[in-house]
Design a protein around this nucleic acid. Structure first.
Lengths: 134, 134
DNA sequence: GCTTGACCCTCTAGTGACTAGAGGGTGCAT
DNA sequence: ATGCACCCTCTAGTCACTAGAGGGTCAAGC
């Protein structure tokens, strides 16, 4: 119904920065919209849908390349869902690994912090722990 | 004892890439070493210690700026350990937040993946979930 | 003594995903 | 008609490296 949107309205509607939208256009992620007489970008509902999709996928941590892939699959509606499933699962695995890494790291840091006496740096366990035992 | 190290040996000893060492020198994180007659960088034990410290801190996820700060504190050995503690704790908090974010994200993704029927993309729940409800 | 290959040098540009700024034009309300 | 928020393009900066071009050096083996 609303029809045309300026870049600012589109930004507001999707929680994206104006610069980011122009960036997405530049890298070919979002199609270039029509222009007004004053050369303003004018977006329609299709753009809104596409950008919402992009933002949602990005918020879920998919890379721009993965988003591109997902959109390509979404556009060819006759294909199997399995390709999409594969991408999502790969991404899920990457997140699992990241969480494990961060958790290990957090407990290392905790040990460091726990051992920090309130003495001068000369006795600081954190500095010691970071320094090599040379 | 060993005394002098080429950049390659230093890289091997610390698990750093040669290019990264040159980069650290360029940004002033690692002091520029002496040069051989053939203009080769020649590192000593102090460089090895410093680079080990840097690598360890980076592995623990400290930013280059944080490493710089930590090294500055380590160098002024008369100061309180508390400044170090503050940096470590800030970093710990950031990691806690990151883990929480990733965990939330993982369960969202799991829900998406679970709901993915093996039908064509037209019925794909992942695409649906990513697309806006317009 | 000469060649081969692994190492070293500098300098520049590329990565991902934006973000910021300069320098200017447009639209609308007062 | 004036102010202000918005829009435009273009360029460069961010972070922490990484890669490549185009060259010099060193040590071992023949």
């Amino acid at each position: 119904m609303s029809g045309q949107l300026t870049i600012g309205k589109l930004a507001g509607a999707t929680g994206t920065k104006v610069e980011t939208i122009r960036y997405y256009e530049q890298i070919g992620l979002l199609p270039a919209p029509a222009r007004s007489a004053a050369n303003y970008r004018t977006y329609d509902a299709a753009h809104l849908r596409r950008l919402s999709f992009i933002r949602r996928a990005r918020d879920l941590g998919f890379s721009i390349d993965q988003v591109r892939e997902l959109m390509g699959l979404a556009d060819r509606r006759d294909q199997s869902c399995m390709a999409v499933d594969v991408i999502a699962n790969q991404h899920r695995d990457a997140i699992t690994r990241k969480i494990a890494d961060l958790t290990a790291l957090a407990s290392e840091l905790d040990a460091l912090i726990d051992s920090c006496s309130r003495n001068t740096v000369a006795d600081c366990r954190i500095i010691e722990a970071l320094a090599p035992s040379v």
